[in-house]
Nucleic acid binder design. Structure first.
Length: 571
RNA sequence: CGGAGCGUAGCUCAGCCUGGCUAGAGCACUUGCUUUGGGAGCAAGACGUCGCAGGUUCGAAUCCUGUCGCUCCGACCA
């Protein structure tokens, strides 16, 4: 491709709405343009990079035995109601009506469609296992689109769905995808690693996310350098011991605490109750039903765990107006010792199990109880792991201190089980003629997000530093004179023809611009290899090869193509 | 949805508080000349419903009301 024949609108300054490096560079390097919040046009260069990522994904999915299909992005409301997700995923579903007032969903994912297909087309164990995938546009009614392609209303996703006869088969399918994902991200030039993950409204019981470490990510990953344990903070547990029991008096004791409504205030003079000897009492509304939640004073409730443990679809903290009539006191004086309505369940964090000598609110403004025993004084409906892990806690597997890292989620694999196949009747007959639901898995990769993650991970002060696998063009030939009959331009044309014939993606910067301008542009866009041809060095029979991330190489004019091919092969 | 902020040329922004003649700068763009190994110089030029609607006023980019869009923080997040 010749630079003058494509469209690469680079910007010296970055538009104000870009906040993070990768978003700025996507705009500045002329890869994308914004149409509206979370909605972007891919320009020629951006589309080429996107296609590279897609191509890698297709090759690895095919290699792993999956088949490509293409499913509708417009889906009837009914199948979403059948799976139950019309309600549970309601917050992010794009819902539309056609002119006949029929309801449709713009697809955020395709479990319903593929499972309907399997229900109709697959009837025998002889047809299994199968894994279908597609690459296409997905929609999500993001409340707040952010960071360019990272969190958009419309994006490209690769989604795959496996069907097996048995749980073991499903695990095998899962692992094939898990391995394919590792290959895909490595080929994209990304440092991505798998972590244990929550399954959210997709459902299922086993799941990993593929994370790219980045401070601008929207996830926190807990990991242990000693043993390799890694989990999303929403899922992670640690090896902290339970609260140590002590010798205590025979009964709880009420004491006045006027104006004290925080853990911190109670920890100070004159009360001096350490946070780890306090019970934090929270009231939440789980699917419109109030519950009391107890965690230790120095712990934070993890709302994702709360949803996962209770199966709730929507959780939110109760408001003060809801709490007062329920427990008789305002937040800050709440507890679960007395005055707990019998229909309100009490869920307590495991770490409080067996704890005593604790202090908690008395459900009376301005009063607390001390000398509280969880066992003796509180009727706990159910114990759960509900707390959020903190940096430095002992690893749940090996007891070494864990670390926490921000990260971008680029892929997610789920073992779904039979949740969808049961609801949508994807049944098969086994050898004995007995009917079973297929055991499913689903596997997503955010393609556009992956592209941006590559840029977020690979850039410097001058611009993007494309890994060779995802670069829109691998080589940029930069003649410093573009006069058609000049030796410089003739050689540039020759290199262009030779490299193109060898299957290398080459762009020839044939713009009649000053050298500095062209150099800056090629570095901003980030082509992995630049071949510079100038009159002065050519007079000595030399040209310059500049890897974007390495030292300048001076090559003889007749060796340059071989040298470039060598660099491409080595990458 | 709660909080904060911003909408003026393709981009970055000034002007608004304290209303006043013809709405500005830099970059980008067009033409010419010069320049030619790290985002050139000079000259000339083109580009604006000042987000939109209404109001106040002799007069509104500027003040008021409404509305739409965008950004950030929070909530949310397959």
């Amino acid at each position: 491709m010749r630079w003058t024949q494509t469209f690469i609108p680079t910007l010296k300054e970055s538009p104000t709405d870009a906040e993070i490096a990768s978003h700025k560079l996507l705009l500045r390097a002329g890869l994308i343009r914004k149409l509206g919040a979370g909605v972007y046009t891919f320009l020629p260069l951006g589309l080429r990079a996107l296609r590279k990522v897609e191509q890698i994904i297709r090759e690895e999915m095919d290699r792993a035995g999956a088949m490509e299909v293409l499913m509708p992005a417009i889906q009837p409301k009914e199948i979403w109601e059948q799976s139950g997700r019309y309600e549970t995923a309601s917050g992010v579903l794009f819902k539309v009506k056609d002119s006949a007032q029929r309801d449709w969903v713009l697809s955020p994912t395709a479990e319903e469609v593929i499972t309907s297909l399997a229900a109709n087309e697959i009837s025998s164990y002889r047809q299994l296992p199968k894994n279908f995938y597609q690459v296409g546009v997905k929609f999500r009614d993001e409340i707040r689109p952010r960071f360019g392609l990272m969190r958009a209303k419309e994006f490209i996703m690769k989604d795959a769905y496996s069907f097996d006869t048995t749980d073991e088969g499903a695990m095998a399918s899962y692992h094939k995808m898990y391995e394919a994902y590792q290959r895909i991200f490595a080929r994209c030039g990304l440092k991505a690693f798998p972590v244990e993950a929550d399954t959210g409204v997709i459902g299922g019981n086993y799941s990993h996310e593929f994370m790219v470490p980045a401070e601008t990510g929207e996830n926190d990953v807990v990991y242990c350098e000693a043993c390799g344990y890694a989990a999303n903070l929403e899922k992670a547990t640690s090896g902290l011991p339970k609260t140590a029991p002590r010798d205590i008096g025979p009964a709880v004791e009420k004491f006045p605490t006027p104006g004290v409504v925080t853990i911190e205030a109670l920890a100070k003079e004159p009360y001096k109750v350490a946070a780890n000897r306090q019970i934090k009492t929270l009231v939440y509304i789980l699917d419109s039903r109030p519950v009391i939640i107890l965690v230790r004073g120095d712990d934070q409730l993890n709302e994702t765990k709360l949803m996962a443990r209770t199966g709730a679809v929507a959780v939110r903290p109760a408001t003060a107006d809801e709490i007062v009539p329920l427990l008789g006191a305002k937040p800050g004086s709440l507890g679960a010792v007395v005055n707990v309505p019998s229909e309100v369940p009490v869920y307590a964090d495991d770490r409080l199990q067996g704890a005593n000598d604790m202090t908690t609110g008395a459900n009376e403004d301005g009063f607390h109880f001390r000398n509280v025993s969880l066992e003796r004084d509180i009727k706990v409906t159910q114990w759960f792991d509900l707390r959020t892990v903190k940096v430095g806690e002992p690893c749940v597997k090996c007891n070494q201190p864990v670390k926490i890292q921000r990260a971008i989620e680029v892929g997610h694999v789920f073992k779904l089980g039979t949740k969808y196949s049961e609801k949508l009747n994807a049944l098969y007959l086994d050898e004995a003629g007995k009917q079973h639901p297929a055991v499913m898995g689903c596997y997503g990769i955010g393609v556009t997000r992956t592209l941006q993650a590559v840029i977020e991970q690979s850039n410097d002060k001058d611009g993007i530093v494309w890994p060779i696998g995802t670069a829109p063009y691998t080589v940029c030939i930069t003649p410093l004179s573009v006069k058609p009959d000049s030796d410089v331009m003739k050689l540039a044309e020759q290199y262009y023809a030779e490299l193109t014939a060898k299957g290398v993606d080459v762009i020839l910067d044939d713009r009649d611009e000053r050298p500095g301008f062209k150099f800056k542009d090629s570095e901003l866009v980030g082509f992995p290899i630049r071949v510079g041809i100038g009159e002065k060095s050519l007079a000595k029979g030399e040209v310059e090869i500049k890897p974007r991330s390495g030292q300048l190489i001076v090559a003889k004019r007749d060796d340059a193509v071989a040298k470039v091919l060598e660099l491409v092969a080595a990458a």
